[in-house]
Simulated assay, not measured.
Amino acid sequence: MTETEQETVQAAPDLAALEQEGEIAADYIEGLLDIADIDGDIDMDVEGDRAVVSVVDVKGGDLVGPNGETLEALQELTRLAVHRQTGERSRLMLDVGGFREKRRAELSKLGAKIAEDVKRSGEPKPLQPMTPFERKIVHDAVAAAGLRSESEGEEPRRYVVVLPA
């Protein structure tokens, strides 16, 4: 095996480990839903290099919260539960009721619009503070539009600045 082939094998995500993360996370979320007496179905998937657990058909309770704050907290708790069982840091993503998918579409559109504004004006444009998930989506949209962007500030007030070419 060549060195390049070895790097490719090492870089490939461990599907079995990601599926195990998803199983652990799903069990954890199911337990939380039971405790809170909230009905919902759980879907698991692997997207790229992370496990994705989605609570769908949620009935009762607000698991997203204002601006996704409750969802972020649940995701961190779930990642900790996975870490406790596997000993490995998890990049698991938790979604509830399609919130993250809707947010991804909104932020992609925002990133493209801001990139066009910056192309026209030639001036850098700072955005509102965002979570790491949200900043990544904006960075990708800005890059797709042919510009670059940077994150500035400290958590939880970290934000994206879109820069002219």
Rank of each mutant, 00 (worst) to 15 (best):
D95M: 12
T78E: 02
K136S: 13
F99W: 15
E123G: 00
I114K: 03
E72A: 00
E21K: 11
I137N: 05
R157L: 04
K125E: 09
G98I: 01
E23H: 04
D39R: 15
D27F: 13
S54Y: 10
G111W: 07
V82W: 15
E23G: 08
A51Y: 05
L71I: 01
Q85Y: 01
A17F: 01
V46M: 11
M130Y: 07
T78M: 07
D57L: 03
R158L: 08
E134G: 10
R135M: 06
T8S: 11
E76H: 15
E69V: 06
D39T: 12
E106T: 09
K102T: 06
V46N: 12
E116S: 07
Q10L: 04
V162S: 01
D49A: 14
V160F: 06
A16W: 03
K125C: 01
S108N: 15
D45T: 01
E88T: 12
G146K: 14
L110T: 12
A36H: 08
G87M: 13
E101T: 07
V64A: 14
E76F: 12
L33I: 04
K119D: 07
S151K: 08
R120E: 15
S149R: 02
E123I: 08
A145L: 04
D117P: 01
E88D: 05
E106Q: 14
